[in-house]
Amino acid sequence: MKEEQVTKAILEWLISHKWKIVCFDFPQSGTGRILHPNNGNYDKNKDAIIPDIVALKNRVCVFFENKNRFYRPDFEKQNAIKNGNEYDEAIMNLLKGYSVDSIFWGIGLPSANHKQGSKNAAHLVDFIICVDEDKTIHAAYNPLGISFE
């Protein structure tokens, strides 16, 4: 399963559960929204991030980083953004016009690749959404009880 398929499956799932998609990105899509660090050089993309999915429902916002395999740096990146404020200006700008109370950061990956590595890293993020080969989706890790469905 490619990253594109993971992202598209999650998009379809979120939309079917009435989430509003703010932005999304997958390789070669050209649709991603670039978020620069505060006081960043907007002419260059150094240290910029492009979330794979940003979605909203009932004043809850979720940021996804998706992959076709376990990749620990993604978990660490989400954790850093969650705990820091380096990208707050860009995030506030992205969500301007939307009513948001809480933001959660998580990971999307194929069910077949959610193994010991991602289970050990789960504590770094707020949720892990898994995609099966037949595109069914489930929340493999959701300790905060985010109401995805």
Binding site: T7, K8, L11, E12, I15, S16, I21, C23, F24, F26, S29, G30, T31, R33
Partner: peptide, 16 residues
């Protein structure tokens, strides 16, 4: 919001 590009509104079916 989409850099001036006109994308298909049916994201579920035609994302990107």
């Amino acid at each position: 919001n989409t850099k001036g590009l006109k994308n298909d509104p049916d994201i579920a079916k035609y994302s990107g």
